[in-house]
Design a protein around this nucleic acid. Sequence first.
DNA 1: GTGGTCTAGACCACC
DNA 2: GTGGTCTAGACCACT
Lengths: 130, 130, 130, 130
Amino acid sequence: MIIELDMQSDVPIYTQLVHQIIEGIASGRLKPGEPLPSVRNLASDIGVNLHTVNKAYTLLKQDGYIQVHRQKGVVVHPEGMPPVTEDFLNKQLEELRPIVAEAICRGMTKDDLLKTVEHIYLKITQTRKE
Amino acid sequence: MIIELDMQSDVPIYTQLVHQIIEGIASGRLKPGEPLPSVRNLASDIGVNLHTVNKAYTLLKQDGYIQVHRQKGVVVHPEGMPPVTEDFLNKQLEELRPIVAEAICRGMTKDDLLKTVEHIYLKITQTRKE
Amino acid sequence: MIIELDMQSDVPIYTQLVHQIIEGIASGRLKPGEPLPSVRNLASDIGVNLHTVNKAYTLLKQDGYIQVHRQKGVVVHPEGMPPVTEDFLNKQLEELRPIVAEAICRGMTKDDLLKTVEHIYLKITQTRKE
Amino acid sequence: MIIELDMQSDVPIYTQLVHQIIEGIASGRLKPGEPLPSVRNLASDIGVNLHTVNKAYTLLKQDGYIQVHRQKGVVVHPEGMPPVTEDFLNKQLEELRPIVAEAICRGMTKDDLLKTVEHIYLKITQTRKE
DNA sequence: GTGGTCTAGACCACC
DNA sequence: GTGGTCTAGACCACT
């Protein structure tokens, strides 16, 4: 699994890590039950401090994306992913709203925007079917 | 124009301000050329620091959403909104990607997601036609 | 609010902090909306690293005991405490079971045990009524 | 005797083992003098490391719950259980306090809490009378 | 060797 | 001045 970090980004590194791993799961490159590198290994591989990786893993664990198994180490949650809760939908709504609003201001039509979202969705999931 | 701030949110207040004003423009509640409250007034109205409002206005000016006249004060940009640049599309893509990926992980179908985005789009623009 | 830490205990310092603050709330010494010391102040007061205090605060925030207000700093959650969820009852059950089992082994009667629990309950809440 | 371990739990496996065996004794499923599986057998049965089982047995022996004979192997202590010492009561108090405090915060009444403890007590001891 | 905990010290974003 | 983030380095508990 390839991790790409942007050290200049204002998005915290641990957040970028969380995003990349979630995208890895969404794309099927990371499968349920599959082991993830240890905190220390991943940290040295991508050249960040182990605490940064640790924070990312902790957040992923809290949300149910991964498990910290006392023997196998860190693995992608083997029994499916966290469900679509009401909290999640609210969070998603609050994240999407400013993006949609800005798109409207700049004159993107509804179809333009939907096509963009669809394109992203398909790009992520396409590797799944291969 | 009503501004709603969440002091507990992890989104900075100035960012919340920017979002709310952009959404106000997108929804048509704020029209091109319409005056906005002065930094000082808005700050005291919503109970935040002057710097916070100032930073929000500065960002909005940089992106071309508002103009700051020496005399007329702050107004919504009268000559249309900033265009859909390539930079904007890239930024939008990077913002949408983790949201879409998380939706996929949790089992939202493409249609579910598109319907959500469409719903937000319509909710924001509906007041426009009235 | 007096914090007592046992540096020799095998209970992590941040956990001891969480316990003490929860007990402070339970006893009424910490009231809803009341401000808590800043991470740095508390850390220097009790002689531990600020990260340790930070972790305790983060956990308390996650469980809804405190709020991190962008202006007022850290305060005891003003609108009542987290509810008795099913998750909480399960966690409580799993914590109590080994304690009860050990008490049984050592020959404590049911009444002995209940009296002990009642005594603790009253000791914590007594200051409330004063 | 069935042992149930949770590899995801933050409770160490050896502690879970100690708890389960103590609960086995408390419930009467393990009777004084009854033999326990050897370190080696138990370890392979439940799929954990030898050291882990060994540590659990060592702790149980220290507290007087089991005896380790050179020949007979490991047996539940035949001559009654460890007594209710002052040290034990203090330890119990320190374990119960944060649990009780959290229950109070979340609005459990004294009777709710006592009923929960009583329920656990009876659930463990009920098999004894059969 | 693994994750968990703690420390020390630094920089930045926010207010 | 506040919390948030990141680094570096250390020790320990667990397996």
